[in-house]
Design a protein around this nucleic acid. Sequence first.
DNA 1: GGGTATCTATATCAGGTTGATATATATAAT
DNA 2: ATTATATATATCAACCTGATATAGATACCC
Lengths: 182, 182
Amino acid sequence: MQKDTLCLGLLSLGPRSGYEIKQMFEGPLSDFYSLSFGTIYPTLNKLQDEKYVSCKQLSQSKKPDKKVYTITKKGKDLMKDNLLGDASAYIRSGNFGDQIKSEFFLLLLFAKYLPQETLDTVLNERVLFLRQKLEQFKYDGPVPSDLQALRNEKSVAFIRGLATTLIESGLNYMEKNRGKLN
Amino acid sequence: MQKDTLCLGLLSLGPRSGYEIKQMFEGPLSDFYSLSFGTIYPTLNKLQDEKYVSCKQLSQSKKPDKKVYTITKKGKDLMKDNLLGDASAYIRSGNFGDQIKSEFFLLLLFAKYLPQETLDTVLNERVLFLRQKLEQFKYDGPVPSDLQALRNEKSVAFIRGLATTLIESGLNYMEKNRGKLN
DNA sequence: GGGTATCTATATCAGGTTGATATATATAAT
DNA sequence: ATTATATATATCAACCTGATATAGATACCC
């Protein structure tokens, strides 16, 4: 999916600044996708130039100004078109896997070159990290409106359930089988 | 982990050509990490220049020549040093998650903009793909020596078990809950 | 008050990676 | 003979990331 479509998609959930879009990528979306500032800001400028989004400069008390982008009718149309094209391309591509770079799995793979103690720490930290992730996905209390917009999506309920299941079974496996690494 | 260390790590399992390293990234390693030819070939050349690997040009019947790289003592030392540094950096970084770009999850996220039929196809293809992956991870019969070298690693047994568990629980969840997307 | 740290916010850019493309040998199929 | 496919190496434009710069504002501490 191209960055344009992705930014439009996130803006379709409600008006946001570039900084807030980045925050979504660092928060709940981090497990599925991410974009850097160096991609987000130029993309928003381009989308604005081409009238797919409108922009309001907003003064804030206690914080610097921010530029809040709102998706336009033209933007929504482009987003839907692109999404349809992306889905078709995905199906035609024949490649249904995800693109992953996992430092953790590489370290595991070369575990025999690491001191036992280092490997233990790596595993312990990963387990703690996953437990935290699990709590986040399970948490159902109040959240900022950014996240609430995501949470209201029917699809997000499905995704959160899937993530919870995956993390739980992963943790379970690791706790039962980590002895096999020694 | 830098590409140098990764290539050295894979060569530590046995001598290989750049093409064969790429095949590993497209095969069993694809779920954890990948590098492109544009990264692999220059890295091997650099490693050879600096004597971390040696290279033998090999004539093959029925196939073009290939350059087979073998890790040197100097290379193994560098690899172990770097691995140790990477593990420490991983621990110190405080970021224990993986870097993921998932077209599938993005399409799910914006499911409401897709026709039911398209979404169904996306899900069906993903399920078929995961079933295939599962078979691959479970398969225990004879494989080419490249893969056998990987399989003999104690850590790979752990990783294969983990992957199997994750895919199985993911498939299970998707089959039971996909109705929630409608 | 001054120093420092942190958070919000936007922007830019060098450096590195990808995905595409080029080239070449050899087999197999049509 | 032509096309397609697999092996094999190499290069490069286009793109993205991670780092860095800049700046307003709050907060803490001595």
